[in-house]
Structures are given as C-alpha cells and as structure tokens.
C-alpha cells in the first residue's frame, strides 16, 4: 500500500504546546515539508524567537538556536556567515519581529543576508497573554488595548512586508495566509521559493504568514479563520510583494 501522507522528516515526532485552532502547527509542517522536499535537513539551521514559537527548537529536527526577543535575524546573520553553504531560517512572530526586533529585521534585509525569515503575523502577543502588537488591527481589543486599538493614541499597524520591500536588499518578500486549503498551498509555494532563493544566493527572503490566535482573540478556531479572511486580508493584502526574478509586484 502506498503511504500518501506522513510526518515530514524535518518535523520532530513530539506533541506541540500550541493551542487548539492555532495555525503555528500548519506553518511548522509547511516549513518541514519544504526542507524535506529540498533535501536540506542536514544543512539547515533554524532560529527560534521569543513568543509562542519559542519552543520551535523542539519541533524541527534540523539544528536550532534559540534567540533573544527580536534578535533572530542578527543571530541568523552570525550563523550564516559561519556556515555560508547552509540554509538558515528564522521563525518569528509579530511582537518579536515587528516591535522589539524591528531594527534587526530591517538591517538583515538591507544587508541582504542570505537567510529566510518566516514571519508569523497574528496581530497579537500570544505567549504573554494577548497584548496589543504592532500589527493589531485598529479597533481590536487586546489586554493592553481593552477599549479597542485607538489609532489616535496607539498608532497604526505596520505592514512589514511592504516596508521591507522598499529596500534594495531583499530578493523575495511574500505575504500569504493559512486560513484555507488554497492559501495553505500558496503559502507552501512561497516558503519553498524563499528557501530556493536563499540556496541560490539571491539574497534576503521573507514570507509573512497571516495566522490565528483563537485563544487570545477570544473566539473559536472557525471564527478565527474567518477573521483572517474578512478583517486581516483587507489590511494585509496577500501576494508576492517583491521578487527580484519577476520585478516589483503589487
């Protein structure tokens, strides 16, 4: 009998700590599938962030480093400079990357470090219990914006992918989502392209993945997937925002 579905070898055979309905598990799997498909598990080094994915080092079977909050792109820079023939990726959430780690991601992109950043954007601090993130949508209630994010006092969400795409350094920047099967398939393609570009030495690559946090959003997993589609997509449009092989894209 032909086995049609199995655990990717790059994904460790352990239970994860993620909440029910959280899409981190899907994203982990997509990365692991791409690592398997490219046959690079023995030369991949991942960098785990601070946040919900802090324990990512337990979930991938490649070498892993755990980085300080926001510093994953700097840590990845150090690794990649020592191991230029390796594939190095960072896995970061929106608090980690878009808030405390803004300088590190901007300059890694500007230097065109040969790394791939997987930027998981669910618009909230998950691990610490649901505080406002730089990507929290206007009006959304969090534990530190209990009356809803008031843009007159708390500013506006940052569109990281569009911001980084203004730089000359990045080779590939895409925003994808995992709220339904069609988008999961597109997300996988984008992740694969990012890793391929890195391995070909084309430059810095980043895939922003819109993700859910049913626990801290205070809604069911189904409602969370619907919120991605109806509320996040209008603010964070999907697509390949920069691809040096295809020229600038909208």
């Amino acid at each position: 009998m032909v086995k049609v579905f199995e655990r990717p070898k790059a994904l460790a055979d352990v239970p994860t700590h993620y909440c029910p309905g959280c899409t981190h598990g899907i994203i982990h799997r997509l990365i692991a599938e791409v690592i398997d498909e490219l046959g690079i598990v023995d030369k991949t080094i991942g960098v785990a962030p601070v946040g919900c994915a802090v324990l990512a080092y337990n979930y991938f079977t490649c070498d892993m480093q755990q980085a300080a909050h926001g510093r994953a792109p700097a840590v990845a820079t150090g690794i990649k400079r020592v191991c230029p023939d390796s594939a190095v990726f960072t896995y970061q959430g929106d608090g980690d990357l878009a808030s405390i780690g803004c300088a590190e991601i901007v300059h890694a992109a500007a230097r065109s470090e040969q790394i791939t950043t997987i930027f998981v954007n669910n618009g909230i601090y998950g691990m610490t219990g649901g505080q406002m993130a730089p990507t929290t949508l206007p009006g959304d209630k969090t534990t530190t914006s209990p009356y809803g994010r008031d843009t007159s006092k708390q500013g506006f969400p940052i569109r990281i992918s569009e911001m980084l795409a203004t730089l000359d350094g990045p080779a590939y920047i895409a925003r994808v989502s995992v709220h339904n099967v069609a988008n999961i398939v597109r997300a996988r393609k984008a992740i694969k392209k990012a890793f391929e570009y890195q391995l070909a030495g084309k430059g810095f690559t980043l895939v922003e993945i819109l993700s859910t946090c049913p626990t801290n959003w205070g809604i069911t997993p189904i409602e969370a997937l619907n919120k991605v589609k109806s509320e996040m997509l209008p603010y964070f449009p999907l697509g390949e925002i920069k691809d040096i092989e295809a020229g600038e894209k909208k």
Partner: peptide
Amino acid sequence: IAAINMVYGA
C-alpha cells in the same frame, strides 16, 4: 545589541 547577537549565532 545586534552585534552581540551575531556573536551568539556565530
């Protein structure tokens, strides 16, 4: 901050 974290990675 970035420099010391690059040291960490390397």
